[in-house]
Amino acid sequence: MAPTSQRRPRLLAAGVAALSVVVSLLAAPGVAAAPSGTASDSAVAGAASRSTTAAAAQAAACGDGADALVTGSQSSGFTTTYRGRTVYQGEYYVTAIWEGIGALTPGRTSQEKVSVMASAWIGNNTIDLPSNTAFEVCGTMDVGNVSGRGAIQAVGVRNVSIPNLNMTGAPYFGMRFADVHGLHLGQINLRMSGGLGIRFERDLPGSTDVRMDNVYVSGTGNHGVETWNVDGLRIGTVTARNVAYAGLLLNNTRNATIGTVDGENVGTGTGYATFRMANTNGPGITVDRVRSRGGARGVFCVSNSRGARINNVDLANNGNNSILIENCSDITIGGGTVNGGGEVRLAARSEFPNNRNINITLRVDNTSVRESPCGENTNWYLSGNGSRNIC
């Protein structure tokens, strides 16, 4: 049966694959220089050089070791091979991908890999990844919208990896996961024009042992990355640009180690944040750094979330609260700066327990700090010119 919506007025050019790799490297998370005052020039240059080298090596390796390969273009058609044997030739990009996944060894106990070298539109369709599968898109996959589903998804499976992905479009979810155990997302580049970037489902069984190396997400009409019910999460970097809601949102997620969350123009006009924890999130959350510019909030903890430490923040000109901690416990912000934008606020609603065991070390300039109502065992270590109304 032909895939749904196989034709589209705007088709990607055959040269998009090579261009997308260059763009991904230029915009790779961590490559841009840090804001002035956050590190020495030599340290920033060294970090940028290392990150660029790592991203280049990753991009260069895309397609290496593939068991199944998808090649071709919209104009010439697509070919899928499995270990040198042709398993599909035809006009449908998504069918070529499905046939590549279907050609992998049934009942396998270790990963086999599908590498999509071609660029095109998959239509309003979904790519489901079975257990013991590595799947990557070295070209650019443009995606449609299937209600409640991901353009790429893995549900109820084990040992799945997506080493490289370039995606555009306005899907319902770009990537959707639930009940997945042993998931690795490598260099993920989501340049959306709507939808939600990466979603771990709320109402399905939870996931364990999830790793994301570097996620770049822009242009969503919803969150950039949203997790529910994950136990054991490791993230290198989430870079969010011009996303409508949160950059990285953790819900009911435990035992997470996160490097950097970097947001610009995230959640503008909303109550969301570059980094948000909600819905009894935690414990066991460690974040090395949150950077936020403009948009809505920088950091937001809410709804009985607990047990988190953010080592450093660099927040400036956020349009809502720079930091809002509301009905949370055992939360530490270990250092950093807030400059301008909305106030740093500790607050509470009546439906959850009050804030408890909050420790904040922070330089605050050109905005205010307020605690209302008073929490239980709040410890402030403040500097800077920001006004203070604290307990």
Score class of each variant (00 low, 15 high):
G102K: 09
Y216W: 04
I285G: 12
V217A: 03
N385L: 10
S73W: 00
G386H: 09
L190K: 08
I358D: 14
V364M: 14
G271M: 05
D213G: 10
T86S: 09
Y88N: 08
S75M: 04
V287H: 14
A17N: 06
L69Q: 15
N132K: 13
A256S: 04
P3A: 01
T126E: 12
I285T: 09
D231G: 07
L104P: 09
L104C: 08
V157Q: 02
G65S: 14
R309C: 02
T71R: 14
N279I: 01
G224A: 13
D288H: 09
G63C: 08
G169L: 00
S24K: 10
A278W: 10
T286L: 05
L104Q: 00
D179L: 06
A256W: 07
A55W: 13
Y88R: 05
T378M: 05
R293H: 11
T133A: 06
H181Q: 12
R291S: 04
T367C: 12
G307Q: 05
G206P: 06
G15N: 14
I331N: 09
A56W: 04
A47C: 07
S372H: 06
F352E: 11
L19T: 13
I390H: 14
S387F: 01
R85E: 11
M117V: 01
I127V: 12
G100C: 02
E112S: 02
T367F: 05
Y92L: 03
E91S: 11
G144P: 14
R276C: 03
R10Y: 05
T332G: 03
A103Q: 05
A60P: 07
T237I: 01
F200V: 04
S218A: 09
C138N: 15
R85G: 07
Q58P: 01
S193E: 06
R149Q: 06
A32E: 11
T378N: 15
R199I: 00
R297Y: 04
L250D: 09
L69K: 15
G139I: 01
E136G: 04
A57G: 11
N189P: 02
V180S: 08
S76N: 07
T268A: 12
L25I: 14
R7K: 11
Q6R: 14
G72E: 10
V369W: 13
L190F: 11
G63W: 00
Y245S: 13
N304P: 08
L204Q: 15
M192H: 13
H181P: 03
N125I: 04
G334T: 01
L346V: 06
E99A: 06
R158W: 00
A48Q: 06
V137L: 08
G267E: 09
N318D: 00
G342P: 10
L26R: 07
R149C: 03
A66S: 12
N379Q: 06
T274S: 13
I333D: 14
R211M: 06
V230A: 07
H223K: 10
V238A: 09
A134Y: 07
T237K: 08
P283G: 08
A33H: 11
T280H: 12
G307R: 00
I285V: 07
G90F: 06
L129W: 08
T109C: 05
L129E: 11
E112K: 02
T378L: 00
G259D: 07
S368Y: 09
V22A: 10
E136T: 03
A66K: 07
R191E: 03
V70T: 12
E201P: 01
I285A: 09
N321I: 00
I198Y: 15
F177T: 04
R176F: 11
I323L: 15
Y272K: 13
A347Q: 15
T86R: 14
